[in-house]
């Protein structure tokens, strides 16, 4: 094995290179802080049922009076129904994160599939797939997602599909470019010469090499998906019974909290959305810088 023909990595090599990447990531202070914030948010979302009960979230039998400023009993005030803003915001993390992550899985899944197929099969397949990708890249994404969410039956699954189906184009472009560079390497030719079929080449050689890039792209996509979820919920297109950060803001607007100047109903969900999106973006950029050192210091 010469340096020009890198052998497929053994398990030990993989572990060592993971440790090296982990160390490089740990040197990025913003990236570490963002990762900690995300872990804390996910922890709060998972543990939410321990502190927040059904009684706290009931719109009909709300525990307090509606739209009260922060007090000792409700540290973040109450929302339009009289529920504690603290409980609503913590509970909202569950839907917002779940929808954001699921939509990302759909989006990155479609993007990776289209990108690898286009980069592997070339020719007509590539032309057609890339045309479709470019088409999705220019369409106004939110308008398309909102239109989809309004014509399909209302619900959380619809929101996941609407976001996932409209946001995969960037991933597809990136994955295709990476697939092309991987496929040009000699060991792919060797795998083909040894009788490897399309399935073998794409899953055993292309996919592992594309995976790091897909991971970085995933963290960036999550941020967009969470923003999209809150936006669709604000436009009234989510599941109307679910408590998410977007529906909380929509409710605040509906009950007139904005024109009354009730800032405490607006700040917690909005800050939560912005904080989580920012953290995912910072994580994605840090991962990108670690995996692709050429980009380091650019952003």
């Amino acid at each position: 094995m010469t340096a020009a023909d890198p052998a497929p990595m053994s398990r030990g090599d993989r572990r060592r290179s993971l440790v090296r990447l982990g160390r490089a990531y740990a040197r990025n202070r913003a990236g570490v802080a963002a990762a900690c914030l995300l872990l804390a948010t996910v922890g709060a979302a998972v543990a939410a049922p321990l502190f927040v009960g059904a009684a706290d979230l009931s719109a009909v039998h709300a525990p307090g009076a509606p739209l009260r400023p922060p007090s000792a009993r409700f540290p973040l005030g109450t929302d339009g129904y009289g529920r504690s803003m603290l409980a609503v915001t913590v509970w909202g993390a569950r839907i917002s994160l779940a929808v954001g992550l699921l939509a990302t899985v759909v989006s990155v899944g479609i993007g990776a599939l289209v990108g690898i197929c286009a980069g592997h099969f070339r020719g007509w397949t590539e032309t057609v797939l890339m045309r479709v990708t470019d088409w999705f890249l220019v369409l106004p994404t939110l308008v398309l997602a909102a239109a989809l969410a309004s014509v399909l039956p209302p619900g959380t699954a619809t929101v996941v599909v609407a976001i996932g189906v409209t946001s995969w184009a960037t991933t597809a472009r990136l994955v295709r470019a990476q697939t092309l560079t991987v496929e040009a390497r000699p060991y792919i030719e060797r795998a083909r010469a040894l009788g490897g079929d399309h399935w073998h080449v794409t899953t055993r050689h292309v996919l592992p090499n594309v995976a790091p890039l897909v991971l970085a792209q995933t963290t960036l996509t999550v941020s967009g998906a969470i923003l999209a979820e809150s936006t669709l919920a604000f436009l009234g297109l989510g599941d109307p019974t679910a408590v998410s950060w977007g529906t909380t803001l929509q409710l605040a607007r509906q009950v007139g909290a904005v024109s009354a100047g009730d800032w405490w109903v607006l700040l917690p969900p909005g800050l939560a959305i912005a904080g989580v999106c920012l953290a995912f973006t910072v994580c994605g950029r840090a991962l990108e810088a670690v995996l692709n050192p050429r980009l380091a210091g650019r952003r």
Binding site: S223, L227, S230, T231, F234, L249, A252, R253, V258, S259, A260, G261, D262, W263, L266, L267, P269, G270, I273, A274, C277, L278, T281
Partner: peptide, 19 residues
């Protein structure tokens, strides 16, 4: 990273309604 509609709502509260 900030949702545009939320920024708009905040601007209304601070600059149009007054805090």
């Amino acid at each position: 990273s900030v949702p545009s509609f939320w920024l708009g709502l905040l601007l209304i509260v601070v600059l149009a309604v007054g805090v």
